[in-house]
């Protein structure tokens, strides 16, 4: 018998979650590459984090290994830290140019 787990978690379930995760990740990536708004770009990275988190949890569930969830905690940490710093930088940039358009920052060109 299986205690504490309401249902089984087969390879099929895992693959479903993984496909979902990869789709979310790809959507996040495409969003990052296509949106010009700096903040939305960061949101897209958060989306990619989210996708990774789902994959982590799914694998953790598959193997009954809670490191997966622990890593999600770390993902949350990094996401929070990133949000704090990145948003501060965005604010900084916005003050200079009054725009959130990533294409307006071309000084790295040569």
């Amino acid at each position: 018998m299986m205690l504490q787990l309401a249902s089984t978690f087969s390879q099929l379930s895992l693959s479903q979650y993984l496909v979902l995760s990869s789709l979310l990740f790809v959507i996040g990536l495409v969003g990052f590459l296509t949106r010009r708004n700096l903040i939305v770009m960061f949101l897209c990275t958060e989306l990619m984090f989210q996708a990774a988190a789902i994959a982590f949890v799914a694998f953790g569930r598959y193997w009954f290994d809670f490191s997966g969830q622990v890593f999600v905690i770390f993902i949350l940490t990094v996401a929070a830290a990133e949000a704090a710093l990145a948003l501060a930088l965005v604010v900084l940039l916005y003050r200079r140019r009054s725009t959130l358009n990533a294409d307006d920052w071309m000084e790295l060109c040569e």
């Binding site: 590459l33 990533a102 294409d103 071309m106 060109c109």
Partner: peptide, 14 residues
Amino acid sequence: LQNGLLQSYAVTMA
């Protein structure tokens, strides 16, 4: 490729 546009770098990298 080095046009200074953040996202074209990102496209390349990705």
